[in-house]
Design a binder for these strands. Structure first.
Length: 261
DNA sequence: TCAGTTGTTTATAT
DNA sequence: AATATAAACAACTG
């Protein structure tokens, strides 16, 4: 699930249900997912303290509580759920924050990502690494500026969290398809018009994904057909290609997204 | 049995 | 210093 829109949905879960509530107990079902504290250390830092307003930075969720910030990353299959205290435990619930009237559950099937504790911004930065500006707050000028100084392939550039934070494989394929840019195009070969089209696609894709809490697999979107066996382009009905670009499985339309020269 | 999967890190090469 | 590529991590699903 987790790219920027998904993580923003998890932020809303925390903000709407857990913020302002005291943590009564923490339950660590999977020690390895708690990356830089012991289960006891987590309990000591959190017990009796209320969650405050969470913040999303790229694909990271920052959850301040007490004197620390919880840093959550969701890998490819993580999520955050608010559930009643008596709800059935889920097989992939890894870390649970029990509050009065419900509990926040960090669930993660594949176990990439995890939860870190940071005492200040410096410790947080050491965990997240350097992040570029958040994709959701980027303006056209800043976007153009970033691409000015970038070499190499456009797909790799858009997915690089140090350049722009928050875009993942699905979003980038959707954005490239919307802007009619071939995923292997070199950044330097894109003219102003193409870069503007990329920015427009980035903004419109995010605007419609964030409220949904995911890249919506709706009709008319690449994401709506990308997993089909003989997927066709929703715009021109040409058979989609599947290739590997920047190390990731990539879907694109050979007619809408012309190959680089 | 085997390929494929929404993310990152590491090693290695260019 | 940047960028590219492959493999590894893990746990499934089809």
């Amino acid at each position: 699930m987790p790219e920027l829109p998904d993580v923003d949905g998890f932020r809303r879960v925390l903000a709407e249900h857990a913020a302002g509530r005291e943590v009564r107990a923490t339950v660590v079902h999977d020690r390895e997912m708690l990356r830089n504290r012991s289960p006891q250390g987590l309990g000591r830092a959190l017990r009796g303290r209320p969650f405050r307003e969470p913040e999303r930075r790229g694909k990271w969720l920052f959850a301040p509580i007490g004197d620390v910030v919880l840093l959550m990353h969701f890998g490819m299959t993580g999520l955050l759920a608010w559930e009643r205290s008596d709800a059935e435990p889920h097989r992939h619930d890894r870390i649970v924050f029990r509050c009065r009237g419900g509990e926040l559950r960090y669930r993660n099937m594949r176990r990439f990502g995890g939860i870190w504790v940071a005492r200040d911004e410096e410790e947080a930065a050491a965990v997240t690494g350097r992040l570029g500006p958040d994709a959701a707050g980027l303006n056209r000028k800043a976007f153009q500026e970033l691409l000015e100084h970038r070499r190499g392939g456009i797909k790799a550039a858009l997915m690089d969290q140090r350049l722009i934070a928050g875009l993942g494989n699905l979003l980038v394929d959707e954005i490239l398809w919307t802007a009619r840019v071939h995923p292997e195009r070199q950044v330097g070969s894109l003219d102003r018009k193409r870069r503007d089209a990329l920015f427009d696609a980035l903004r419109s894709t995010l605007r419609r994904s964030i409220p949904t809490g995911r890249v919506p697999p709706r009709r008319g979107w690449l994401t709506g057909v990308r997993d089909q066996r003989d997927a066709r382009c929703p715009r021109c009905n040409t058979g989609l290609r599947r290739t590997t670009v920047a190390g990731r499985p990539t879907r694109w339309c050979p007619r809408c997204q012309r190959a680089p020269r």
